[in-house]
C-alpha cells in the first residue's frame, strides 16, 4: 500500500454524467488488481474531511484511471480539477476479484459501478458485460471497451432510451435461465443496492456463483474505523479490508438493499 501525491493528467467527461480522471503512479499501477480501490483526498482543506474510495477503472502503463459521477461534494470537487492539480492517493486497498479458469464470466454493473468490472475485463476474458444505466445520457460509451469487444457490451436503461428498457438484472436472468447456467457462469457484480440485492437473489435462485464489489461509504479505508462493515454470514466485516469484493453467498441479502 502506498500513500502518494499525484498530479492530475487528464479529467474528461465521457457522457452527460460520467467522468474519467487520470494520474500517474508507477507504484500503484504496478500493484493494483481489478476490484481493488484507492482512497483519494480531493482537497487540502478540512471540508470535505474524509478521503473518497474509488475503484480502479483502468491502468495504462503507469497511468491510473478513475471513473466517477459528480453527485456529492467530493466528486464535484473532483470534476473541477484540472491537469496539473495535486491529489493524494492511498492504495491499492482491499480485495480484488478472483480470476476464473473454468467458468464463463458475466459482468453485471449499474451506473458508475461499471468501473471495477471494466478493469477486470481489461485483464481477463469474459462472456458479456451487462450494464444498466438510468438513460442514454448516463451510459458508459462502448468506445471504452477493449478493441474488438464492443459487441460483448449490452445495455439496459430505466427509461428505454438505449438498449433494453428496464433493469440489467432482467437481462442477466435470461442467461441464468440457460439449463447449464450453474456450471457455466460466474458473476462479477458492482452497482447500486437494489441491483445488488436482485442479483444476489437471482444468483441464489439459479445457484450461480459469483462475487460482488460493495461500494460502501468509507471512513479510513484501512479497516480501522469499522464504519463500512458489510453484513456477512461470518458477522460484520469491514468492507474496505475484507472486501470490497465478497462472494455473493457470503453476504446477507438484507444488508445489500440499503447500499
Amino acid at each position: 500500500m502506498y500513500d502518494v501525491e499525484v498530479t492530475v493528467k487528464e479529467n474528461k467527461r465521457v457522457s452527460e454524467v460520467l467522468w474519467i480522471l487520470s494520474f500517474r503512479s508507477p507504484a500503484i499501477a504496478k500493484k493494483a488488481l481489478p476490484g481493488q480501490f484507492l482512497q483519494l483526498q480531493v482537497t487540502q482543506a478540512t471540508d470535505p474531511f474524509l478521503r473518497r474510495p474509488f475503484s480502479v477503472y483502468k491502468i495504462k502503463r503507469d497511468i491510473i484511471e478513475i471513473l466517477y459521477e459528480p453527485v456529492g461534494i467530493g466528486t464535484r470537487i473532483l470534476a473541477g480539477t484540472k491537469p496539473g492539480d495535486l491529489l493524494k492517493a492511498l492504495g491499492p486497498l482491499g480485495t480484488g476479484f478472483t480470476p476464473q479458469k473454468k467458468k464463463k464470466v458475466l459482468m453485471v454493473g449499474g451506473g458508475v459501478g461499471a468501473a471495477p468490472l471494466v478493469f477486470m475485463a481489461e485483464r481477463y476474458p469474459y462472456e458479456k458485460m451487462l450494464l444498466g444505466f438510468r438513460g442514454k445520457h448516463a451510459v458508459l460509451p462502448k468506445s471504452e471497451a477493449k478493441a474488438g469487444e464492443r459487441s460483448k457490451w449490452v445495455y439496459a436503461t430505466n427509461d428505454g432510451s438505449l438498449g433494453k428498457k428496464g433493469f440489467i438484472t432482467q437481462l442477466l436472468e435470461e442467461f441464468l435461465k440457460e439449463p447449464d447456467a450453474k456450471q457455466k457462469y460466474f458473476l462479477y457484480v458492482c452497482g447500486p443496492g437494489p441491483m445488488l440485492y436482485e442479483t444476489a437473489r437471482l444468483a441464489g435462485e439459479y445457484q450461480v456463483d459469483g462475487e460482488i464489489s460493495l461500494e460502501e461509504r468509507m471512513g479510513c479505508g484501512m479497516g480501522a474505523c469499522l464504519g463500512c462493515v458489510a453484513e456477512t454470514k461470518r458477522g460484520y466485516l469491514a468492507s474496505c479490508r475484507y472486501g470490497p469484493v465478497f462472494r455473493i453467498q457470503d453476504l446477507m441479502p438484507e444488508g445489500l438493499q440499503c447500499h
Binding site: 471540508d47 470535505p48 474531511f49 474524509l50 474505523c225 464504519g227 460484520y236 444488508g255 440499503c258
Partner: peptide, 23 residues
C-alpha cells in the same frame, strides 16, 4: 460486541459523526 447496524458514520463539516457501537 457486534456493534451497531449500518450506517455507522457520516461526514460532517470538517469532521465526522460515528456510532460504531464499540464493536
Amino acid at each position: 460486541r457486534v456493534g451497531n447496524p449500518m450506517p455507522r458514520i457520516v461526514e460532517t463539516p470538517s469532521g465526522m459523526l460515528n456510532a460504531i457501537g464499540l464493536e
